[in-house]
């Protein structure tokens, strides 16, 4: 999964020759003091940066726990000294809001099938591009890689027309198909390269044992490719869960995910923070849980996916 982490060049500029004299003790002590002070500054700087990163989220969380009138009257930080302002009322109201709960389920219904389809279709194709032979294989793979560049924006208009003719416009399957298609180039690229590293002897041995390609694929390739598949699945899931643009166009009001439902409320920003803040928190809590649950795969997936 070193998709973006290049190996550093092995040749370093030759370091200067080794020191010839030992440093004077006094100088060493001075250096140590300086280093200690420097480390203090570094620590302080990093703490400040960390606070800058935490504060906006804390603001969202605290705002989501305050009543509309409190939010209109004062800043969320006043809740730090007056915790009495905090309550779960906004969340109870949110869960009773039919639009929001349906949007939440739509998000699940869009992102889970998309992830599964991308992984299955890309794994099949990735294996074929890596180990099966068919005419024009390498050229077709190159074309697939070239498709990595295509921004979703280019596809919106033509696919909207196509889906309109097929009756898929405004439906969840339409949104899913679009996401799958635009997730595939990267997914195939990633998995083919991972599968290509499987030692040839392993596959030959499996073939000798009389395994059909399907059997080799399910029994050998998929298990070996699990780390790459996990990273891909996490990246793809987040990508779709967090998407707003595609759903904004392709989903109608009954199939729209949480992001689209919430953005329609942003127009009235300020007067409905009591809906927006808990809604945004609901939408971000799932990815954040995924993040902490699958830290390593997550970081690798995002790293790899960012080349898109």
């Amino acid at each position: 999964m070193s998709a973006t982490v290049t190996a550093p060049p092995s040749k370093a500029p030759a370091p200067a020759p080794a020191p010839t004299s030992r440093p004077v003790p006094g100088r060493a002590a001075g250096g140590r003091l300086r280093r200690w002070l420097g480390n203090g500054l570094v620590r302080a700087f990093l703490v400040v940066v960390g606070l800058v990163w935490v504060t906006p989220v804390a603001g969202l969380l605290l705002s989501s726990l305050r009543s509309a009138s409190d939010n209109a009257a004062s800043g969320w930080w006043t809740a730090l000294t007056a915790p009495g302002q905090l309550s779960l009322d906004n969340y109870t109201a949110l869960l009773g809001n039919a639009g929001i709960t349906r949007a939440f389920w739509n998000t699940v219904l869009i992102s889970v099938p998309t992830t599964a389809l991308v992984v299955v279709i890309a794994a099949l194709a990735g294996y074929a591009f890596a180990w099966l032979e068919f005419p024009g294989r390498d050229w077709i793979f190159l074309l697939v890689v070239a498709l990595l560049v295509v921004p979703v924006q280019v596809g919106l208009l033509p696919v909207a027309k196509l889906f309109g003719q097929l009756g898929l416009f405004g439906t969840i399957p339409g949104v899913v198909l679009f996401h799958v298609a635009y997730g595939l180039p990267f997914a195939i690229f990633l998995l083919r390269n991972y599968f290509a590293d499987i030692p040839r002897e392993m596959l030959e041995a499996a073939r000798m044992d009389g395994g059909g390609e399907w059997r080799i694929f399910t029994r050998l390739v998929l298990p070996v490719g699990r780390p790459a598949i996990a990273s891909l699945a996490i990246f793809q899931f987040l990508w779709v869960w967090n998407d707003m643009l595609v759903a904004l166009l392709f989903a109608d009001s009954s199939s729209q995910p949480l992001t689209v439902e919430l953005q329609s409320q942003v127009r009235l920003f300020g007067s409905n923070i009591d809906v927006l803040a808990p809604g945004a928190f609901l939408s971000l809590i799932v990815p954040v849980v995924v993040f902490f649950a699958f830290q390593r795969h997550f970081v690798q997936g995002v790293m790899a996916g960012s080349v898109k």
Partner: peptide, 23 residues
Amino acid sequence: ALAFVLPALLLLGALVVHPVLFS
């Protein structure tokens, strides 16, 4: 082999390649 790549190629052709040319 074609059966393995076909689903991917169909989707990519219809929803990515064709739209780029169309655009």
